[in-house]
Amino acid sequence: MTRIGSSDLDVLPLSLGGNVFGWTADRDASFEVLDAFIDGGGDFIDTADSYSSWVPGNEGGESERIIGAWLASRKPSGVVVATKVSQHPEFRGLSAATVRRAAEASLARLGVDEIDLYYAHFDDETVPLEETVAAFGALVADGLVRHIAVSNYSADRIRAWVEIARRTGVAVPVAVQPHYNLVHRNEVEDTIIPVAEEFDLGLIPYYSLASGFLTGKYRSTDAAGQDSPRAQGAAKYATPAGLRIIDALEEIGDAHGASIAATSLAWLRAQPTVVAPIASARTVEQVPDLLAGARLELSADEVQLLDRVSEWTPTRA
């Protein structure tokens, strides 16, 4: 188990991404994935109020509703649920009123009395940061939220949030959620990890498997015939440099009897301040590899080999 920053939340070091629930996984498939995750020892679920508003016919909140129905049906103990605010079509931005109404709506969809971990999903610079910080602090003070966190914030804005919270005596963030993986490293390592270390924030990376590229499934930049946005996103990483990373992951994984995906998640877990990479599963068959990634321990030499082979950033090309 791993502690999330300065909080009292201890979790298996893997977070199950709920972005696919109500999108590429319907209610029944989502229930099966959640059951397999919990049965395998998982206890940390990540979602957002906006999932999956981008799907035609959806309005947002679909993932939270599915998770809420599953929680009501299974009544699991010790499960930590994280959700987010700022992108739901009805609750955009981070004004105090929006944050409060969005949190209440999420509580209703999830069917819980308190949100374990509540993120500001994206920064909203149209609202004074003092207002947003106070709004999140009030949610904690009123018992609607247990701990707060930020996602997709710059290091400067994270530092400013913490300083305002400390000065005003409200709850400080305990976690930060950035885009971070073996093919997207530099910005997080240069700016976010140092501020996380400074303020004892747990790092909970999303896109941990680079839209599936770091599973080894996509080994060509030719996305012809690929009918999913995920496949299109993964294919862009299948450059010679990207494939060298896959080859290294495969070699190290084979030595442990582990998959490429599990080895990639294990590398992330070995990075400073990282608590629990987020990875999603559309089917039950995908869950064991994710759980294996929460338990696989790489040697220092293996971590360094992956560090060396991944010293590039395709997004800056």
Rank of each mutant, 00 (worst) to 15 (best):
M1W: 02
V11K: 01
P13H: 05
P13R: 02
L14F: 13
S15D: 09
S15E: 08
S15G: 15
L16W: 04
L16H: 02
L16Q: 07
G18T: 08
W23L: 11
F31Q: 07
V33T: 08
D35S: 08
A36V: 13
D39M: 09
G42S: 10
F44D: 09
A48H: 02
D49Q: 09
S53N: 04
S63M: 08
R65C: 07
R65G: 01
A69K: 05
S73L: 13
R74W: 09
K75L: 09
S77E: 14
T98N: 10
R100Y: 12
R101E: 15
A108D: 15
R109K: 13
G111P: 10
D113H: 11
E114W: 06
L117N: 04
L117K: 04
F122R: 11
V127N: 02
P128I: 04
V133R: 06
G137I: 11
G137C: 10
A138K: 14
A138E: 15
L139S: 05
V140D: 03
D142P: 06
L144Y: 13
A149R: 01
N152F: 10
N152W: 09
Y153D: 10
D156P: 00
V162P: 01
V162M: 09
R166V: 04
G169K: 02
V170M: 13
V170R: 12
A171R: 06
V174H: 01
V174D: 02
A175P: 00
L182P: 06
H184K: 14
V188G: 06
D190L: 10
I192P: 01
P194H: 05
P194L: 01
E197V: 00
D200C: 08
G202N: 02
I204T: 12
A210M: 04
A210H: 00
S211L: 12
S211Y: 15
G216C: 10
K217E: 09
R219P: 03
A223Q: 07
A231E: 08
Q232K: 12
Q232W: 05
A234T: 03
K236C: 12
T239K: 09
P240H: 10
A241Y: 04
I245C: 13
I246L: 15
I246H: 07
A248D: 10
L249S: 06
E250A: 15
I252R: 11
G253F: 07
G253W: 05
H256I: 06
I260C: 02
A261R: 00
A262Y: 01
L265H: 04
V274T: 08
P277K: 03
I278W: 00
V284L: 05
E285N: 13
L291E: 11
G293K: 01
R295Y: 03
S299P: 02
S299Q: 09
A300I: 12
V303E: 06
L305P: 04
L306T: 07
L306F: 08
T315E: 15
